[in-house]
C-alpha cells in the first residue's frame, strides 16, 4: 500500500531544516529525508509526533494513494 506525504511542505511552512526537524522529534536526518522521498513510511509513534509538532492530523500529513 503506497503512501505519500506533505512533510517537506509542512517543514517549509515551519521554516525548519531536515536537521532541525530531526532533532526536535528525536530521529536521524536520514529518517526525515527517507520519509520526504517516500522511501520509508514512519511508525505510528513518529507520525503522531510529526502531527503534534505541525498541529495537523496524521491524515493531513500522510495521504493514502487513491488506487489503494
Amino acid at each position: 500500500m503506497d503512501v505519500h506525504n506533505r512533510l517537506k511542505i509542512e517543514r517549509a511552512e515551519f521554516n525548519l531544516t531536515q536537521e532541525q526537524l530531526s532533532k526536535r522529534i528525536g530521529v536521524s536526518r536520514q529518517t526525515i529525508n527517507s520519509i520526504e522521498k517516500n522511501r520509508y513510511v514512519p511508525s505510528t509513534i513518529l507520525a503522531l509526533k510529526l502531527s503534534e509538532l505541525f498541529g495537523k492530523s496524521v491524515n493531513e500529513i500522510f495521504i493514502l494513494d487513491e488506487t489503494d
Partner: peptide
C-alpha cells in the same frame, strides 16, 4: 547499533 539509532535504522 548505528551511530544514530532510530526506527529507520531498525527498518
Amino acid at each position: 547499533m548505528d551511530s544514530q539509532e532510530d526506527e529507520f535504522s531498525k527498518y
